[in-house]
Design a protein around this nucleic acid. Structure first.
Lengths: 341, 341
DNA sequence: TTGAAAGCGTTACCAA
DNA sequence: TTGGTAACGCTTTCAA
């Protein structure tokens, strides 16, 4: 048996009624259009009986709307993004929107292709963790009146709604926390990236050190190894050259995982030999021994604000300006850093 | 500026050519239809110039195909699923398919709604981690000629393609591994679920114990607590009542995380006081101290077979039977269990 | 209170 | 070689 869905036309034929009438009733416009009670009942009963479901494709083609939002993240297997994805989906459902996720794998080409394919499927809006190269595409989306909101980072020189966190401030405060414990040589471990969130985390670190008159030491990891065997080898190398380091501040949680591998290989004690702190909390950090201090991003708040921002854009009754939100993080001190007291 | 895309009709008008001709050229049927070189060039140049992109919605509506596959998993924030998602997406892209992910959150209602909404958007196929309650919907999908393939678990009494792993055998072998170290009281920690993969993991454990003439001890966790504070409290309670336990075998990795919390609270040493083993490996297990032995599922193989299975179904040239694959896992011994030697 | 018909952007059949 | 036109399933305007 091949697909054979009942359409409005079939219903019209079976009931001897026009498709217009059916359409009105299905779309809850019976009252407005003053359709008789009997007619409404007749149609509704039949619709229920045959289990009719409207074809969304046809609806979208005709109306230009689809009730679908796209969530484009860098990598869905990263727990930060997959957690955000789950929260957003939950909220979207409540607002009668469906979410389509996809990963860009940090490839601008792939991101562009995805944007084009979804545009031509009439999705209503995009929630994106962008790369700077996406500026042109995003400008176009805005011009073409799609809902667009960025998160995690934003694009300099582009006036677009976004939801980010206080990267600089949290990084500054966390660094100060380390300085307060007496650490003199604090290493900032990051990846080579000009993404705004990474730059801001770096800035916060640098500012705190400057204020304390300490010298900064930044290690930019040139590439990632996800192989268990080599995890952390680059950081290990760096640490060997800096045996007097007091503390490591990791710009992301996955860097911290690599760092922990390195620290284990070097048989260093945390926090006695080396304090450890990471941006972006992870359940792992509370379970590791010793537990790892981290800066927790407000996942729930981010998801909430993203939905709020994009729904406002899509609501034609609201005159929406660009919506720019910066949320506070929470520093979670654990055993890997000395308490200030 | 509001959305205003050039359509085939616009091109036809601008070039004074019929839309049929344009359609042929765009779809690479120029040769087949013997369109003249000049015409092809004229059209292609214009298409490139205005950056025309076909409307996928309209294409799907007309053709019934969409080149979109849906991946419905239980919870996208679970690392097993998000890793599978990434791999599948990668493979789908290579085959010119787009992937839409969504989470069912283990709600049959939500799953049904998702299936219906995607059906009415003409997606070509579904890759699903099903619950037993979804049997009827899935039967319908098959009847209606959608591509369907299940993974992680399957539905008894339903003849549907699937890709699963050797749950029973791996569980059996892992249990034997524990028995070989001399463990007498091995606790199997699982969740209350009739899903096939959970049942099979349990069976493997029971069989190995029976063979060795040992008594089974199964703890079914009644509910999950994701709050850091209470993580592992239920397991802790259980362990207090079984102080003579030699080993814990966790049916999933997230149960193991809870268990590790419990073990830490009780200040037990791994593996001296208690050996630990988990189904479904996680990067965490190699980093934890001591590292945790685990059964690793072949993520890459699962993704590969899933794509192969569903692409076969969608290829009209292939007469596809139901495609049932069971893949081997790999036991990864680490420090949390004694080596056999 | 209900219906006819145009149109959304394609594809595919048949004709020229 | 190319073009006309119906059809995919729906919404919406206008007419009855």
């Amino acid at each position: 048996m091949v697909r054979k869905k009942t359409s409005i036309k079939d219903i019209a034929k079976a009931l001897g009624v026009s498709i217009t009438t059916i359409s009105f009733i299905i779309n809850g416009k019976a009252e407005e259009k003053r359709i008789s009670k009997e007619m409404v009942k007749k149609v509704e009963d039949y619709v229920a009986k045959v289990g009719y479901r409207p074809n969304h494709l046809a609806q979208s083609l005709r109306s230009g709307k689809s009730k679908v939002l796209v969530l484009m993240v860098e990598d869905i297997s990263n727990s930060f993004f997959s957690n955000i994805a789950r929260l957003i989906e939950e909220k979207a459902f409540k607002n009668d929107y469906k979410i389509i996720y996809c990963s860009t794998e940090n490839s601008t080409e792939k991101a562009k292709e995805l944007i084009h394919t979804f545009k031509s499927r009439n999705v209503d809006g995009f929630i994106i963790t962008p790369t700077a190269d996406l500026k042109f595409e995003i400008e176009n989306l805005i011009k073409e009146n799609f809902g667009v909101i960025l998160f995690d980072r934003w694009i300099p020189g582009l006036d677009c709604s976004h939801v980010i966190v206080e990267n600089r401030r949290s990084s500054f405060e966390a660094t100060q926390h380390l300085i307060d414990t007496g650490a003199k040589k604090i290493i900032f471990i990051t990846v080579s990236s000009d993404q705004t969130q990474m730059q801001d985390r770096l800035k916060g670190y640098l500012e705190a050190l400057e204020l304390a008159n300490l010298s900064p030491f930044v290690f930019e990891e040139p590439f990632h190894s996800s192989s268990e065997e080599f995890m952390g080898d680059q950081i290990k190398e760096f640490l060997l050259n800096h045996p007097d380091a007091d503390a490591l501040f990791f710009a992301t949680n996955y860097l911290a995982f690599e760092g922990l591998h390195a620290i284990r290989k070097l048989e260093l004690r945390i926090p006695e030999d080396l304090q450890v702190l990471a941006f972006d909390d992870h359940f792992f950090f509370s379970l590791y021994q010793p537990s790892i201090s981290a800066i927790a991003q407000p996942l729930e708040g981010i998801a909430e604000k993203l939905m709020e921002g994009i729904l406002n854009q899509l609501d034609e009754n609201i005159e929406s300006k660009t919506f720019k939100v910066e949320l506070a993080n929470q520093f979670v001190p654990r055993k890997s850093t000395f308490s200030k007291s």
